[in-house]
Every structure is written in structure tokens, then in C-alpha cells.
Amino acid sequence: MRQPPRYLTFRVYQGVDLSQLNPVQNASPTERRMDIFALTWRLPIIVWQILFFVGPLLFMVAMSFFLVKNYVMQETFVFDNWSKMFSRGYFRDSYFLTLFLATLSTIVASLVAFPASFALAFKVSESTRRWALFLLIIPFFTSYLVRIFAWYVILAESGAINAVLSTIGLRPYTMLNTKFGTIVGYMTLTLPLVVVLQTFSLANVDRNLVQAAHNLGCSPWRTVYTVIIPLAKTGLIVAALFCFILSFGDFVSPYYLGGSKPPTLPILIIDTTKSGQQWPRAAVIAVVMMATLITIAFAAITLAYRKRASR
């Protein structure tokens, strides 16, 4: 019989070897919370995030109540910015346009990604899948801005696609400054991530259940709808949520490929901040965006984790 390793004969609690401690001392774990070692690892990020993450965001919310007079920001508490922004037609148009584009982007990305994710999850070998995911992670961390500029050149009136169209005798097709252009840009941003997340959730679907459906005479299409999609639901919704958040907050695609007429909310933030010097009004837009995203994220997560009605 193997002896257990010597260290296992000691009880270890929260990293402290109890055998070396006075029993009274470790009787109450709450006393142990203030140890320097633990705080060294726990505190830095708390301080950092409060100073440079929570701080800026809260200050931005506060800033939406400030006033700008003679180009100087005054720390007041008035609702002027809010009432001004909400009474402007362009803000409302911009809001619904952004909501529409982000929703469209989410639907397109989810649909375009699904067959590819399905193929990667079910139709290829383990190592091919690993390679595919390896490749898809690269563009996600690779200069999005330069990729959009490349699309700008490809989609332009005299660009590569139209050059090909004209050699086969077709008339140039306007793709820049249209919603099509914007969506191509959004796909560049979101598609790799959506495929990665969808593939993960599909690959985790229990193969036995898929096989069972098949054995019971379920057609492949019906298996996808009634077995695979419901089982992978959480991951699919999370992928869609990330796509929505990324599209909703992106300014590069609607600006360079969509022509920014009318502007989306992120473009409006830039215009208001950079040329208008109206930081408080930009803060109103940002707070409205945050509120929208929080609502949608909450709804999506509720939907993602909702148990299916029992039959």
C-alpha cells in the first residue's frame, strides 16, 4: 500500500498550515482575512480598477450633469444636457439607427457564422478545429482599423471588387457609404469572435443526444433545430450578445464604410467631444448607450439561462 504523501496528513486551511498554528488563533477565519500576503495579491487590482475604471465611468455619469460655459466645464448639477439631447431629433434618429444596425449586425453575424461553426464543431477533426480556432483568434487581436481601411479600398467605386465587375461587363456597384458597407465592417470586427464562441458551445453539445435523435429517425435539419440549437442556446446567445455590444459601440465601420450619414451614437460622441467640446453632452450619449447595453445584456443573459419549459 502506498503511503499518502506526508503533507497530506496536515490540514491546510486557506493556505495556512494549521498544524503550526495555535488552535485559538485559527479558530476564527475572519481574523485571518487581514494577512499581508493575501492582500498583496488582492488589493492592487481593486485600487487600480476603482481609480481607473469605476472612477472614470462614475465621473462620466456625473459629467452628464455639468455645464460648459465659455469653453470651461463647470461642475454643476443641472439637467440641461439631458433635456437638450432628448429634444434633438438627430439624437433620436441616431439612437434608433445604431440600435437597428447593431441588431442587423447581430442577426447577420449569427446566421453567417452558424454554418461555419457547425462545420467546425461537427464535421472536421479535432486538430482541424484547433487550427481553425487558432486562426480565428488572430484577427480578433489584429488591427481592426487597418482591416477596415483595406475594406474601404476593396469596396470603393474604383476598388478591387468593382474592377472585377467591370471586366466581366457589369456596372460598378456602390458599396461604400451604404448600410452594406457598415455591415461588412461589423462582420470584420465580430465574425471571428462569434464563430469561436459558437463553435465552443456547439462542440460541447452531447454527441449521444445527437446520435439518439438520428437513431429515432429525426432528419438532420430537424436535429439541428430541435436538439442542437436548444442545447447550445446559452453559448449562441452569448455570442450574439458580444456581437451586439461590439457593433453598438463601434465607430470605425459606420464612419469609414457607412459614410456616417446619419451618424451612429459612437460617431456622435466623437463629434460632440472633439469638435463641439461639449463633453457633458457626449457623456449623456454615453450614459444612454450604457443603459441600453445593460438592459440588453440583462435580457440576453436571462434568456440564455432560462430553463426550458418542462413538458
Partner: peptide, 9 residues
């Protein structure tokens, strides 16, 4: 959090 919001904040 959208980068543009972080940027403004």
C-alpha cells in the same frame, strides 16, 4: 464596455 465610452470617460 464599448471602447468609445471608455475613451470619453
Amino acid at each position: 464596455i464599448p471602447l468609445i465610452i471608455m475613451a470619453l470617460a
